[in-house]
């Protein structure tokens, strides 16, 4: 038992929060700057390309919608990896990473849902269609919210992290099943009426701004994520300091 705990301690040293904070302090301005540049380029490209002759100007929603949907999924993957880190390596930074990622993921999922709905209005003539992809994203949104609710309901952060990690992994295993079942359900009830955006039908003209925007969104996610992690670490440090203060006062009281 002493050996692995020693190994864990060494591992913690390699990426301990202090070092992580120092790294964040150096990295985040660059990351944020790069994100801004990419957004500038991506948005410029997005608004200068010719609109689709069928969809008109609304096609530009795609440049926000698709990256947000992609991030909704990537964020869950990041959380699942963090959950593994929590359960297998018991790394405290992994706890923080999973907890910080959940609200960000929920936001991107919400953005994907709202833009999907805005896009759907002119396309389908209604704000919401129970289309397979939208529905899966909606279920994902519910899962994010459940995760946040669970995290908020527990007061001990270490235990909350471990238990949420189990939930995240169960959800991660389930996501492909949910996706598959929703697609099954969708083909059963309505034939595919959605304009396919993936695959070879997409032209290079749309692809370039889309790619730039996707990279910009991914960088935005990482910027937000490391900043949220930094905040969470600082929040825990404050909690520790407060506890120290409370205990110190208690001991002085005992002495007097």
């Amino acid at each position: 038992m002493s050996e692995p705990s020693l190994a864990i301690r060494k591992f913690s040293d390699l990426a301990n929060p202090t070092r992580f904070l120092a790294l964040v302090a150096i990295v985040w301005p660059w990351l944020a700057g790069l994100t801004l540049c990419l957004f500038a380029v991506g948005l410029y490209l997005a608004f200068t390309t010719v609109g689709d002759y069928q969809q008109g100007e609304t096609v530009r929603i795609m440049y926000v919608h698709v990256p947000a949907a992609w991030l909704a999924m990537m964020c869950y993957t990041v959380m699942a990896l963090s959950a593994l880190g929590t359960l297998v390596w018991r790394h405290p930074l992994a706890d923080v990473s999973a907890k910080a990622a959940a609200p960000i993921g929920a936001c991107f999922t919400l953005v994907a849902l709202i833009t999907g709905s805005l896009w759907g209005k002119p396309m389908w003539g209604t704000w919401w269609v129970w289309d397979a992809r939208l529905t899966s994203v909606f279920v994902l949104f519910l899962m994010y919210l459940g995760m946040i609710a669970l995290n908020r309901a527990m007061d001990d952060p270490t235990r909350a992290a471990k238990v949420s990690a189990v939930l995240i992994l169960v959800g991660f295993v389930n996501i492909p099943i949910i996706k598959f079942s929703v697609e099954w359900w969708n083909t059963l009830h309505q034939p595919a009426s959605v304009i396919r955006l993936d695959g070879p039908t997409i032209s290079a003209e749309f692809l370039r701004p889309l790619l730039v925007m996707a990279i910009a969104f991914t960088l935005l996610f990482f910027t937000l994520h490391i900043l949220a992690m930094r905040n969470e670490i600082l929040r825990r440090r404050i909690a520790v300091l407060r506890r120290h203060a409370a205990r110190a006062a208690g001991r002085e009281g005992d002495a007097a």
């Binding site: 279920v139 459940g146 959800g171 389930n174 949910i178």
Partner: peptide
């Protein structure tokens, strides 16, 4: 119920 219902959709 909130946590389990999405998982029970399939």
């Amino acid at each position: 119920s909130i946590l389990v219902l999405p998982l029970a959709i399939p």
